[in-house]
Design a protein around this nucleic acid. Sequence first.
DNA 1: TGCGTGAACTGTGTTACCTCA
DNA 2: AGTGAGGTAACACAGTTCACG
Length: 284
Amino acid sequence: MAEKDDGLGLSLSFRCPEEQYHPPPQQPPAATATAAPFPLNLFGHSDAFPSSAADRNAEQPRSLFRGIDINQSITVIDDCDEEVIVSSPNSTVSSVSGKRSREREENDGERGSSSLEIDDDDGGDAAGRKKLRLSKEQATVLEQMFKSHNTLNPKQKLALAKQLNLRPRQVEVWFQNRRARTKLKQTEVDCEYMRRCCENLTEENRRLQREVNELRALKLSPQFYMNMSPPTTLTMCPQCERVAVSSSVGRAHHQQPMPMASWAAIIPPQPLARSIDAHQPKLM
DNA sequence: TGCGTGAACTGTGTTACCTCA
DNA sequence: AGTGAGGTAACACAGTTCACG
């Protein structure tokens, strides 16, 4: 199927959304990840990072910002293998599971500045989220990474965040939003494809209806039988699949003649069809 | 000022791991 | 020792909010 690139790496395809949007099951298990300076081969073989849940649990920097003053700028850990854990025993959010609570807490802690390179120069507006556009360079790198892999494992996230001077959460959110945009675009493409298919089928249906009417008219016409050549002159073009009488379409398309008997079977038995039956051997 | 875009957030489902009876 | 239930952690996704151009 022809592919159409729209800049989001989308293709005009007809795939099940389940299969097209789900990321690859898991990235292959990892070798030792070294905190390599960028450009780091984050996704090259994708075996640089562990993928099991246990590994994820062991390496998750989820608690990275736990208990950190939200007004303070955050220092990115230098080593991806390092995990900074600040316990927060007095977590107050309790409406959801502890994990969720901590997660939200962590997210809240990331409010205040959308990028590590941006200090709270306006007095630390930690209460309201401050949304700043990512720089062109940041977006470009993220795009490149997304093209390689549309999901990130924790180490990739950390490394990318470090490279771009962003918080891991920002990288994570960017990838989530990017996946959503991709899916939306692909859905639009699929819808357009379906619309075209529908149009084509509608047109095809009209054409076939016209043909049916033509054939019925021919069956009713005595002149047709009188002037009619042997059945072999009623032909069907293999390209356009038009049934044509005599020379009109058939010769124009140079196709093989099609015996009338082969299509006559599809004509519903009607009393008026007796005359043509007289010319044809009984079917069945 | 209304609007589109995209960063950030919220809620939920799924999966894997661990602990304990 | 094997096992099922419950808790926890991590992640992805859909939907939403809202700052910004």
